[in-house]
């Protein structure tokens, strides 16, 4: 840099110059790489401004596509969460032929607790059972007036440790139970458990299949939209190639444009998703009769939201790149 007094001047053609007041004209030269980056960003932004409709079409398509895939993802994830919740409720209830007396109860409870698969043991006496039943009946509890308190059998409710909440675990517990107790009846929802396992499996399978299909459809639609927007600008691409622009020089602004549109599309899709979550997804899942009242529906985690915006960027960049190859041929 030459020292001295400089004056910043805007020349006729808009270029910035530093004028050395004494004699020499020194031109301000930014490093070439920075100059190029600046040019590419400006070019991308200008292109978007010059073609607002095309740009909006790309962003909107990406947003809708991403939001559709993500909505589906949320349905699957929440249903699975719900299913997991249900398995927590899995317990073995042993109804006893005769209620044990106070002395043997403590020993029995301890024995049951020592079964390796068992996590919790809860004794429900005949009186407790009646109380529960009354509570369950609510306003109709008066129906039970005059009914003997020993009508209902006493029972043990055994909660299982998480890793044994399956058919094998239950079978093992039942086998051991029968050594200790004079059991009248056992309830453990075996049929239900089998059905549930099948349901969870098919849910995962359908989830992967449909999710993959949706993703493919989204990719197809987005790349086609980008192709159309580039088709409208094929003259520009042709002329760029004619005046000696390299493939990379043509690609970079379009890739940047795709990336910017991807970010906007991703953010917009999050907005769509939030709206569909609040107004459609959560009311419908919450009204599902098996949903426990304290079940919290999950929205995308922060990381998943970032991934979604990032997928928008990838979608935009790859969509632009793959379409460009069709229009720019050397």
């Amino acid at each position: 840099m030459i020292s001295g007094h400089y004056r910043v001047e805007l020349s006729i053609c808009g270029c910035l110059r530093l004028k050395l007041l004494e004699t020499k004209l020194v031109e301000l030269e930014a490093p070439a790489v920075l100059d190029k980056i600046r040019y590419f960003i400006m070019r991308a932004l200008r292109n978007m401004r010059q073609w607002p409709l095309l740009c909006a079409a790309s962003i909107l398509t990406m947003a809708v596509a991403l939001a559709t895939v993500a909505t589906f993802f949320l349905v699957v994830v929440n249903t699975e969460q719900l299913a997991l919740r249900w398995t927590k409720e899995i317990q073995v209830i042993a109804y006893l032929q005769k209620a044990p007396d106070q002395q043997s109860l403590a020993g029995l409870t301890k024995k049951l607790k020592d079964i390796p698969e068992v996590e919790t043991v809860q004794y429900v006496s005949q009186a407790d059972a009646m109380k529960r039943f009354k509570k369950h009946l609510g306003e109709d509890a008066s129906l039970l007036e005059g009914v003997n308190a020993d009508l209902l059998p006493a029972s043990f409710e055994l909660g299982l440790q998480a890793q044994y909440r399956n058919q094998a675990g239950i079978a093992s517990v039942i086998e051991q139970l029968e050594n200790y107790l004079d059991v009248d009846d056992l309830r453990y929802g075996q049929q239900w458990l089998e059905k549930f396992n099948k349901f969870a499996q098919s849910l995962r399978f359908i989830g992967i299949l449909l999710g993959g299909f949706l993703l493919f459809a989204a990719l197809f639609i987005v790349s086609n939209t980008i192709k159309l927007t580039l088709y409208a600008r094929r003259d520009e691409l042709e002329i760029m190639a004619l005046v000696g622009a390299t493939m990379r020089f043509i690609q970079i602004p379009f890739m940047l444009e795709g990336a910017i549109q991807g970010v906007l599309g991703g953010v917009l899709s999050l907005a769509f998703l939030a709206i569909s979550f609040v107004f459609i997804l959560s009311p419908s899942l919450n009204s599902f009769w098996l949903t426990p009242t304290d079940f919290n529906l999950q929205f995308l985690s922060m990381n998943q939201q970032i991934i979604m915006v990032f997928s928008g960027v990838v979608l935009g960049v790859l969509g632009s790149l793959s379409s460009l190859r069709r229009f720019v041929r050397f």
Binding site: S11, C13, C15, E29, Y39, I239, V243, G244, F249
Partner: peptide, 28 residues
């Protein structure tokens, strides 16, 4: 084969920018 969406200046500058010429050089 001019770009209708760009100004006269931009149309001509395009050829130089495509060759990676520096900004002040382009304007001049």
């Amino acid at each position: 084969k001019l770009l209708q969406s760009r100004t006269v200046f931009e149309n001509v500058a395009f050829a130089l920018e495509a060759q990676g010429k520096k900004r002040y050089e382009v304007s001049k």
